[in-house]
Design a protein around this nucleic acid. Sequence first.
DNA 1: CTGTTAGCGCCTTCAA
DNA 2: TTGAAGGCGCTAACAG
Lengths: 341, 341
Amino acid sequence: MARVTLKDVADRAGVHASTASRALDPEKGSMVHAETVARVRAAAEELGYQGHAIASGLRRGHTSTLGIVVADLGNPFIAPVVRGIENHLEGRGLMALIAETRDDHGRMARVLNNLAARRVEAVIVTGARRGDEQVLRKAQRQMPIVLAVRHLPGSGIPAITHDDERGGRLAAEHLLEHGHQRIAQLCGPRGISSFDERASGFRNRLRTAGLEVIELEDAAQHPTLAEGRRLMERMLAQRGVVPTAIFAHNDLMAFGALQALAGQGRSCPEDVAMIGYNDTPMTAFTQPPITTVRLPGYELGRMASDTAVVLMEDWEQPRSTLSLPPVLVPRHSTLGWRGET
Amino acid sequence: MARVTLKDVADRAGVHASTASRALDPEKGSMVHAETVARVRAAAEELGYQGHAIASGLRRGHTSTLGIVVADLGNPFIAPVVRGIENHLEGRGLMALIAETRDDHGRMARVLNNLAARRVEAVIVTGARRGDEQVLRKAQRQMPIVLAVRHLPGSGIPAITHDDERGGRLAAEHLLEHGHQRIAQLCGPRGISSFDERASGFRNRLRTAGLEVIELEDAAQHPTLAEGRRLMERMLAQRGVVPTAIFAHNDLMAFGALQALAGQGRSCPEDVAMIGYNDTPMTAFTQPPITTVRLPGYELGRMASDTAVVLMEDWEQPRSTLSLPPVLVPRHSTLGWRGET
DNA sequence: CTGTTAGCGCCTTCAA
DNA sequence: TTGAAGGCGCTAACAG
């Protein structure tokens, strides 16, 4: 397909290929006689000429492409982030190659390698986790890398994240304000900054209030509904006090926890209050509607993309690291708690 | 970045670039003396050589890239489809460029043009709608196009879709079986096959049963919650009989409709039964849980990707058009209807 | 204003 | 088994 080349167009217009090239380039159209431009344009039109961005890019030394690496395309929270990136790229002549790691280190390595071979001009990684440092640092020697959503503490790789420490704190404060004393959290996977930080933000705030969090040693393998249910069931199976409030590390885990509670005949919010995280659209429509922490995913995507673009234009930029503020969204799953009985 | 080229490696290994090329190509490694291969590999390693898939592709005549065009990256239903595509591509050395049209014809044209310029070897379009035929047909002269999710009736462009006619029929049958007589539907945007067909499947099935659907002339501009609410409000504002059951063309619209009903003091499922479409994860957790039609999005993605790969390898393949079967998932929003009063 | 020349980085003849 | 030559499609630099 697409047989016709610039040379064909030039021949038909009776000019040299380089003239045709200039005539078709909006930036250089002025260097060429208006009549010639018209002739070349006409020839291109007649032949159905389609420019070859790859060849042109090879010559010019750029690909106008960047990479997006996500852990899980199915995670509802990732959609607005990707959308923010994509919308920022649009109109800049840039396009994104997208790949999924499924939180697998080997896949991360392979994907980055593939992206490097394709000479993307920057990579936005939303799926980094502890253990990826080395691979990422190596990749960083070949192209700018921007971490988004999850960062790698101490790695020095620029990152645009949410302030999850703060998110955890907000959750804790909300529960404290409502008079809870026996408070638990169900932890998302370890080694992922966004989960680790919401855990410590939550824990620390409770300590400040003189309380110790109820926690399992076990954390979720993946931040899924099934894992939320499993952890909640384990917690309920332990003897000792039952918490009056649960902080689940994301909305899906909160649902799972709710199912486990229901299975034990405990109701939310009357017996146990629940807080999720992410403000996934559905949280507003569930029974009960779930109190959650809202993060500006779309904006984060735009900013990560913006950082990536700056970095690809000017390699040795100061590494900007940003953290966007979360907001607590109170709903019935905590507001309806009836207090100690 | 990535300064070192094959020539550098060759020089360091003391061989010609073409030998280095062969040594590094797993397919042609055998054409080269084992010792030479080792020397070249070592040199590449020492220099930190990173292959240049773009240049290599230019020479070999392929890009190992395909395009995915979606209408709305934020639509929860699109995630599994993209996931299915991506997972199918992985391990085949292929990667996908992704772009969003937001259901805008102009954007569709621009995106396809950009993709063609980048010489993607095929494009999967999940966001086609009436009015895109011409642009798509033109693009089809440059690369194979596969429609997914939504097809273009009469266009002859290969498509992998869900059988939405059938989905509509299933919804109708479910309501008939439960004894409904005054049945309405809230229509998704016109000119999009998936909505048009679920509308006609539903309508026709009711006609066969001797019933006429209650419908507005108006359809949703976008398949969103807000539009679902607006349409439901309009319907309730009309004098005459109130339906006992509603078929909303997707789950989000169903939520909107639910809100409108609640606003009028009507409860679901007691007064009015509701059916959605897509089996978005949240439908199982809402109050009430919503009866919906489940579609195999992931499988559809895989199949679309498979078709695209076949087409890019063998241009003039018979145009395979497939339609995957939907399944009705009954939940409380219809099962709890208390019947005519 | 336009043509010539020389590659971008790689791979595939062809010949040795 | 290896090297030389040529070119994928395009454009920058240099003449004229």
